[in-house]
Every structure is written in C-alpha cells, then in structure tokens.
Design a protein around this nucleic acid. Sequence first.
RNA 1: GGCGUUAUAGCUCAGUUGGUUAGAGCGAACGACUCAUAAUCGUUAGGUCGGUGGUUCAAGUCCACCUAACGCCA
Length: 569
Amino acid sequence: MARILITSAIPYINGIKHLGNLVGSQLPADLYARYCRARGDEVMFICATDEHGTPAELAAKKAGKPVAEFCAEMHEVQAGIGARFGLSFDHFGRSSSAQNRALTQHFAGRLADEGLIEEVSESQVYSHADGRFLPDRYIEGTCPNCGYDKARGDQCENCTKQLDPTDLIEPRSAISGSTDLEVRDTKHLYLKQSQLKDKLSAWIDSKTDWPVLTTSIAKKWLHDGDGLQDRGITRDLDWGVPVKRGTEDWPGMEGKVFYVWFDAPIEYIAATHEWADKTGGDWERWWRTDKGADDVKYVQFMGKDNVPFHTLSFPATIMGSNEPWKLVDYIKSFNYLNYDGGQFSTSQGRGIFQDQALDILPADYWRWWLLSHAPENSDAEFTWEAFQTDANKDLADVLGNFVSRVTKFCRSKFSEALPEGGVYGEAETKLIGDLTTKIRAYEAHMADMEVRKSATELRGIWVAGNEYLQAEAPWTTFKTDPEKAAMQIRLALNLIRVYAVLSAPFIPEASAKMLSGMNTLDTSWPDDVDAALQALPAGHEFTVPEVLFAKITDEQSAEWAERFAGTRD
RNA sequence: GGCGUUAUAGCUCAGUUGGUUAGAGCGAACGACUCAUAAUCGUUAGGUCGGUGGUUCAAGUCCACCUAACGCCA
C-alpha cells in the first residue's frame, strides 16, 4: 500500500471560479485521489482557498464587508461547490489559518537564518485617499506612448508597452480614482532565489518523467534572460500573514505582510496541519521526511499559469529552509480550456461558472466531459454542441443504456434477482480476456495520470458490454435456451457492479446509483475479472435503477448556449 | 523583437526511442438487431500527417527555414 499526498492548486477567494479552473487542477486531482483510494493506497488529498492579497480586499470592499468576513463566507461557498462536484478532499483549508500564519513565518525565519533573505528598499506609489500602497496594476493614467487614458501602471493594454507607474501622465488610483498619490520609499524582503538556481536546475533536470509542459516552463524561468530572479516576498498591505522572523518581530517590517505567493503554497502543508488539528491525525507524517514522510509520493495538480511557483519559488522556499520537508515528486500541469472560441474569463463573466454548471446538470456530466477532454497536451475547447453530443453518447447511450437494458430485460424475463443456471462458453471466456486487457490498460493510464487516455479506455470497457450483449443476444437465446440466457444476463448484471467500481473516480454519483441498484456494498476492484463477474451470485436481488443519465436535448443545449454567451452580473 | 507550445481525416484527438498498406471516438452513408434512454452492434467512405528544403536504406516521428494560432517575456 503506497502513501500518496495529493494537492490541487488552491483557488483564489475573490469569487466563484469557472469550469476552466476546475478541469485544470481540482478535478483531475480528485480523479487521481479517488483512483488511488480505490486501489487501496493511503491518500491525503489537500486543497484550500487562497485568501490573501489586494484582489481579496477589493472584492470584500465591493461586497461591503470586512475582508475577513468576506473570505470566511466565500470559503464556505467554494467548499460547498466543491462538495457538490464530488471533490473528495481530506481537507479543504484556508490560507488565512493560524496554522499557515505560523508556518509561513517559520519558513521566512529559516530562510533568513540561511542567509537567503535580503532587505531591499524601493519606491512605491502611496494613495492617501485609499490609505494604502498601490500595486502597479492598480494605478491608472494616460500612456506616455500612445495617449490611451486607461493605461495601467504595469502596462498599457492599448499599445502593450511595458510601463513604470511613474511614467503615467496624470496617474490616479484605480481603486478610488484619487489623484492624491505620492511616491514613497518602502522596505521589502526578497527571497534570494538566484542563489538556489543551480540546485533548482539540477532538481528540475532530474525530473525526466515530468510532462513537457511542466519542465519547459520551469527551464524557461531558470535560464531565460538573466536567469532566475530574486523575488519580493512582502507587501505593504493589511490583509495577509504579518511579517515575522519565526516567532520574533522583524525590525523594520512592522505593518507589512507576506506576499500572497509566498504563503499560498505553504498552505498545502498548513492545511494538512489544519486537518490534523481537526481529526487528531499526524500531519508531519506526510510532510517531514524525518518523521515518516520519506515513503510518501507527493503529486501536485495545477494549471500552467501556476507552474513557475510550484517548480521554482515554492521549492526554493523548501530547499532554502534546509529542513527535511517533503518536496514534490510529480507535477501534473494542464493547459487552458477555452469557451466557444475564446477564453473563459472570470473578469468578463464569460463562460460557465461552477455554480451555474451545477444548477443545470448533475456533477457527473461535467466531471465526465471535462476529464475526458482535459487540456493535457494543448488548450482544449468547450462547445455546447460537443458537450451535448459527447455526454449523450458516452453517458446516456453507452453506459446508462447498458444498465437500463440489462436490468429491464432481467426483470421482464426472469425477476429482479440474478437468475441461475447455465455455464460459460467461448464468448464469455473471450469477454473476460478482453476486459482483463482493457482494465489493465485503464489502470496503467490512471496510474500515469493520463486523464484523457483513461477516459477513452473506460469508455471502451463500457462498449465491450454492449458488444457482448449484441453478439450473444440473450433476448434471442432466451427463446430456445433460457438457462444460457440466465448465465448471460447474470454476467451482464455483474458487469454493472464492475462498471460502477471502475467508473467511480470519474462519475461517483452514477457509480453510487449503480451499486445501490445492484443492492451491493461490494466495491472491490476487479483484479481478477473472472472472479469479479461472479461477485453477485444467482438469487441476489436488485432493483432497476432510475435513468442514470437523462439526455441533453437540443432545446436545452441551445438555451444554455444562449444564456452563457454573454456576461455575468 | 526573443522564447515556448501547437499545427495529423468534416469535428475532437492518439501516434512510444524514425521502419511494413497513418489510428480511435463523434459526425455521415449503408446494414444487423429489437432487451434498452428511437438506445445498441457491424461495415464503408474520408487524410500527399501546415509549407519548403535537408539528413537517412527509411520521416507524421530528426534538422533548417517559412506560415498560422496560442502563451510567456522584453
């Protein structure tokens, strides 16, 4: 039994995420977690909300709530949506937790002790009206290059010229619109990542089995231009982890907080600590190689935009601490999911948001479609037409109808119990061999986190059942040899249980319905297919389940395409 | 401007370290079946693998250049 630590990139707190966020990290992470558990591994599956930083403060302000209250509420909302999608986190934490505060401060202290922290003085724009320093992108003004009057302090999106906030003509706060700005000197802590460059580089080079997407992004940041740059890890904000050196105050850093990208990945560890505090479990057993974590396999899931932080910044924090923390063993990264020819956009309200998706269809439809089209090798495209066609074909026609035809046939010709009699012939032997091959292939793809290939293989396993029925035609056999038909349908009913077990990582709700219909709690994995197809004996009673997957109609598809074309809010 | 990723049948994608007639699903056409959510199963049609040149006995698969899309960075 292996021990697998799984983390999904932690979603930002400022609003409800769209489906692109789901398929890029949480959903495939859940697929893997469920699969590992089903195979008997000991799994710790961690996620959390990423709560610090300016966008959270602004979103809270917009909602008219104190930021802590806003975050607490949004955390519950996101946790609720995750639960409805069937995300099986062992713990869904919060980066604003006391555990993360302590751990973040601890890491900063360790890094300072190791000589990897540097104090840098820099100039930043302070807004009197807002009572705060403004991040570059929250300063607006007229572009000195093209005259565009809504250029941001980091870049003019009209002419794409990179800017410094002081370049702007008539700069103003993007938050309040105030022009009462002042350039002030302020001191910040920098993590000297450049000193760890060789170590990080060697580490990345040793990961020859990682996806190209992951390593190519990491290498680009390591070697591009002047190489890996030192990184500011503090900000002049109120909302965040207060800057401390371990448990000690940090002279000169009063009133400052750690940058959100410094504390967010540390929350993976802290969330496990939160889990331990809640359950009485042992979190260090998962994270400290000197305290039992040396046999843990740690896998991270994330979208490609998060790769630099997980391949470089966070490992730099871990390595730099010079303490025996668990480093990631495998990073599975994803490209983007596009929506009807463009990008999903949180800010523009374009695409489908997670709560909306659940309002129109059960989670399994989304889980199946998104996972079977996971953007593993390149950006993928969501269209309503494809979604409707694929979901109907795969879920309703191939799997759902299989369950339906088998159970209803048995009910009408025999009873709502597995019929007895008959012995296997050539066709059954062949089916068992075929299924064994396919299931072994499925296992291999799942173990490799090849999401699309796993889905394809699983679908093939479903199809094999229909092929068998079509070829053996128990409805015909029944007329001349009822015993043989009984054997065939007994096998097919057992196949439903096997399908439920195999499919559970993808479609847990439907899987539960299938098991419930088959009136069994036996979720044992079909290591031995022959034996698995005899798990339910003759005489075992079942009920015909309700329709597993209703089809998506043309009207629904058209209406939803219309409804989600525009913007939200 | 630099770098990266991608470019394979109408659509969505597979194609291991270069090696016999380039694969799957969907869609299409035709056929079989009638237990089932008008579901299922089978057969067939469809690609000079973005373009040009090169390496090689042999290239979708390596190299160069070009084009296009997307992304990152200046």
